[in-house]
C-alpha cells in the first residue's frame, strides 16, 4: 500500500483528505507544517505528499525546495493543495519541483483525477 503524507495546519483538511485517501486505498499519514513533514520524510520517504502552501513554522514552498535537495528527496510525487489560484504562484510552485496542483476547495473526484494524472493510481 502506498503512503500519502497530508501536510496541512488545518485539522479538518487533514481529516477530510485522509478519509478520501483511505477510500483510494492509500495509507494516509499527517503532518501539521513543513518542518514536521521534513522530519517525517527524513525517516521514511512517502510515495506521495499532499501539501498546503501557507502554514506556520515552515510553509509548503520552502518544504518543497528543501526536500528536493535532500538525498532521495526527488522520489515523492508532490501535489500542492492550496487556496492560492494566482497563475504566477502556480508557476512558482511548478518550477520549485511540484508535480501537480490542486486548488481548494476540492472534492474526492478532483483528488482521484489528479492522482491518476501523476500516475499514482491504476
Amino acid at each position: 500500500m502506498k503512503t500519502c503524507l497530508v501536510v496541512d495546519n488545518s485539522k479538518m483538511i487533514r481529516r477530510v483528505a485522509g478519509r478520501i485517501l483511505t477510500e483510494m486505498k492509500f495509507n494516509a499519514e499527517e503532518a501539521e507544517n513543513g518542518l514536521e513533514a521534513l522530519n517525517y520524510c527524513r525517516g521514511k520517504m512517502p510515495e506521495a505528499i499532499l501539501l498546503d502552501w501557507n502554514m506556520p513554522v515552515m510553509d509548503g514552498l520552502t518544504f518543497v525546495k528543501t526536500l528536493r535537495q535532500e538525498p532521495g528527496g526527488n522520489a515523492p510525487v508532490i501535489l500542492f493543495c492550496t487556496s492560492e489560484r494566482d497563475v504566477i504562484k502556480i508557476t512558482e510552485a511548478l518550477s520549485a519541483g511540484v508535480d501537480e496542483y490542486i486548488m481548494k476547495p476540492f472534492d474526492s473526484d478532483i483528488l482521484a483525477s489528479k492522482f491518476h494524472q501523476v500516475g499514482l493510481m491504476g
Partner: peptide, 20 residues
C-alpha cells in the same frame, strides 16, 4: 468552473491554455 477545470486537466495545461 473551478471544479470542472480540475477534473482531468493537468495544471500545466490549465495555466497554458486558460485565463482566470
Amino acid at each position: 468552473t473551478h471544479f470542472e477545470v480540475q477534473r482531468g486537466l493537468p495544471i500545466r495545461d490549465l495555466i497554458s491554455y486558460f485565463d482566470r
